[in-house]
Simulated scan of single mutants.
Amino acid sequence: MGGRPTFAKLCRVFYEGVAEDPVLREMYPEEDLGPAEERLLLFLEQYWGGPGTYSEQRGHPRLRMRHMPYRVDFDARDRWLKHMRVAVDSLELPPLQEETLWDYLERAAHAMVNA
């Protein structure tokens, strides 16, 4: 996918959108989105074959469990996907890589819905 630089850009662009989204922003109790951006970067980097830093620092990802405290409804899912789509498009990946990444992100977003 392009390694850390690719995922760092993806996360930066994504959280720029989250910062301006009132529904998603309230799901982040930290005033600074930097730590959330770093966690997502480490997770994606590990998921796509990079170092296991995420698991070393935070344990097993358990994505659904980590998102349970937040009300993730269809609106939140769609907002998340909207900002992630902008972030993925900013990467200008080759078509197969873009499709593979987007497929994963879409499935992950649908799996997080809990309300």
Rank of each mutant, 00 (worst) to 15 (best):
V23H: 02
R12S: 12
G50N: 15
K82A: 10
D73Q: 02
R39W: 06
M68E: 09
E20M: 01
P29Y: 01
L41S: 15
E45N: 15
H60F: 11
W48P: 13
F7Y: 08
Y54N: 05
L42N: 06
R77N: 15
E38Q: 15
A8R: 07
A76L: 02
Y15K: 02
A76C: 10
Y47G: 12
E45C: 12
A8E: 04
Y70R: 05
R66C: 14
V18D: 00
S55A: 15
P35I: 05
E30R: 11
E16M: 02
R77A: 06
F7C: 15
S55R: 04
G52L: 14
D73E: 04
G17W: 10
Q46I: 08
E26C: 02
H67W: 06
E31D: 12
E31Y: 03
Q46T: 09
P61L: 14
M27C: 01
R79G: 02
G34I: 12
Y70P: 08
M68F: 08
E20A: 10
L81C: 06
P35C: 08
F7H: 08
D73P: 12
D21Y: 01
V18H: 00
F14V: 15
D21T: 01
R58I: 09
R71E: 11
Y47Q: 10
R39D: 15
R71A: 07
E16L: 03
F43S: 14
K82G: 02
S55H: 07
L24S: 06
L44Q: 14
Y54L: 08
V72I: 09
K9N: 10
W80D: 04
R71Q: 05
P35W: 09
W48V: 14
E31N: 05
G17V: 04
E38N: 10
M68I: 06
R12N: 11
R58N: 06
E56L: 08
E45L: 04
Y70V: 06
P51N: 04
R62C: 10
K9I: 03
Y28V: 00
L81K: 01
L10A: 04
P35Y: 07
V18I: 07
R39T: 13
H83L: 00
P61W: 09
P69E: 03
R79N: 05
P61D: 15
R64T: 01
D78S: 06
E37F: 01
V13L: 03
F43W: 04
G59K: 13
E37Y: 11
R12L: 03
Q46L: 13
V18W: 00
H83Q: 03
R64C: 14
R66F: 13
E38V: 01
F43R: 14
P61C: 09
P69R: 07
L81P: 03
A19L: 04
E45Y: 10
R39C: 04
G34K: 09
M68L: 13
F43V: 05
A19N: 02
E38W: 04
D75L: 08
R79M: 08
L42R: 09
T6C: 06
E31H: 09
Q57E: 14
R66M: 09
D78V: 02
P61A: 15
Y47M: 07
P51K: 11
R79S: 08
Y70D: 04
F43T: 12
P29G: 07
L24R: 01
Y70F: 11
A36D: 13
H83N: 04
G59W: 03
V23T: 13
G50E: 11
W48S: 14
Q46E: 12
E26S: 12
L10M: 08
Y47F: 12
